[in-house]
Nucleic acid binder design. Structure first.
Lengths: 269, 269
DNA sequence: CGCGAACGGTACGATACCGTACCAGAAGCC
DNA sequence: GGCTTCTGGTACGGTATCGTACCGTTCGCG
């Protein structure tokens, strides 16, 4: 039986629904490099991440995968299963940063979705965010330079981990981004010289969040804004999930602010 | 009142549900360069595409958009709305190739989804395919060279259009792919010299589908396979949608075939 | 039929990123 | 404590793609 819950999606649903979900949950450790869902194989469980980081990667070559989205305690590993039984076996889901998760058998998960409307609604909105994140990252991949993409990745990971310290090696970062390890090393050094991050062996630490954001392309802000707008702000005030920035007020806002957002024109790589 | 329907999703649902949908539909022309959904503005309609091509693009800079997925008569423009009221305003949806569509007001669409389970199921599965397409393209963008990506794009467009002739200029292709117009011209010439396509002013024609497929990275096959697997093959035999290649048999198949798929290792750009 | 705009072929130097490789320091392990 | 393994810093030439620009041809339109 599970008691204290860190997962942000679960913390958004009312206690009666929550307790019904938790009855089916099992707490497990997330061990780095472990594969939660293999490419082209059925998903046995879905995982509400409590801590740590899971990356979802698409296959682009023999034994070659590139990350397409990223999941931390703000999300759910396996959400696409709700769209189609056996959806999304195109991806491989790998633990990148150690942590814990609450897992449910996919069949049971799909069944309770029918009787828990709040849970369903939250997961649906989360899935919309996954689509937004994936598409924005994909566009970013083809248009922005590595420095921007790396900054974006670090910022997304920081949000997902809820921690400034991201315990990953350059090699792993390179794999996730689909670039050379040496390119990551060079780029990280540039960012470090600018004072926005620091690095140790096997660790990248975000030192200056605000400045890293301003270096990054706008893609990060769009992704994070979408999470706030669709998942967090759509819930009543009974939620105790803290939002680290002011909530976006309502469905569609501040169009001009977005459109004239400063560091957009200058793709000063 | 609408009679004959070309849209593949609509043709998959039973006639009783279909007629209820069509009562709410209005047939409209798709005019090239017209924007169906503006960035950051609410969607008024969703569009079941009958013919032509609509591209969904994410914003990567001031007045700079890169395509993230593509919709033809096999799909629905605005599907993410079912996940969250006012979802996906991060994208701009633009008609690229002239055609027609059946449109429904988003509110009415969301309402009837509740009472038409077959429609809901088909659209949900289509949405899973959109996620697969988007993520695969995104990964492809960061890993494969332009020649591969261009080939992939042409193949996806050919499927969506159900036509070997793709009436687009080099400039438009470049915009969609997020690259230089001149790069597209050069790449198209290479493909043309290999005999897989031919070009005229404002037109690219796929001359040799099989060979273009074999030049392309595997990403196209993954995308198309996912559509067949999730959308087409999940429906009873009462469907009259023709499938141009043998159906994939069942949810999870031929793992080894996929994994040892030949032209994967050699990303011979 | 003639004009202007759109389109596509081509060129140039610049540069971001590649593949590969080598090595030194740090960490884990017996 | 000494060994192996992992990690990250650095270097090299190679190449795909970039930004920009010019210009002839084709098309649409009046």
């Amino acid at each position: 039986m599970v008691t204290q819950v860190q997962n942000k999606l679960l913390r958004l649903i009312p206690t009666d629904e929550l307790s019904r979900v938790l009855r089916l949950c099992e707490r497990t450790k997330l061990v780095p490099r472990r594969i939660l869902h293999h490419y082209k194989l059925p998903m046995e469980y879905v995982y509400f991440v409590e801590s740590g980081l899971v990356s979802v990667a698409a296959r682009v070559g023999r034994d070659k995968f590139v990350e397409v989205w990223l999941i931390g305690s703000e999300g759910l590993v396996g959400a696409p299963i709700m769209l189609a039984a056996n959806a999304a076996p195109l991806h491989r889901r790998t633990v990148q940063v150690a942590g814990e998760a609450l897992r449910i058998r996919t069949r049971e998960f799909c069944e309770i979705l029918g009787s828990l409307p709040q849970l369903r609604s939250v997961v649906e909105r989360y899935l919309a965010v996954v689509l937004a994140q994936t598409s924005q990252s994909g566009a970013c991949n083809s248009y922005h330079g590595l420095k921007h993409r790396l900054a974006r990745w670090l910022l997304v990971a920081r949000s997902a981990l809820a921690d400034d310290e991201i315990p990953l090696t350059h090699g792993v970062l390179a794999e996730l981004l689909g670039v050379r390890r040496a390119s990551v090393t060079e780029c990280l050094e540039v960012l470090q010289n600018e004072g926005t991050i620091s690095t140790k062996r096997g660790l990248v630490k975000v030192e200056n969040y605000a400045e890293l954001s301003s270096i990054c392309c706008n893609c990060f802000r769009l992704i994070e804004g979408e999470y706030r707008r669709l998942v967090l702000s759509a819930v009543g005030a009974d939620s105790d999930v803290e939002v680290s920035a002011p909530r976006i007020r309502s469905p569609l806002i501040e169009i001009d602010q977005y459109i004239s957002d400063r560091d957009l024109g200058g793709s000063s790589s």
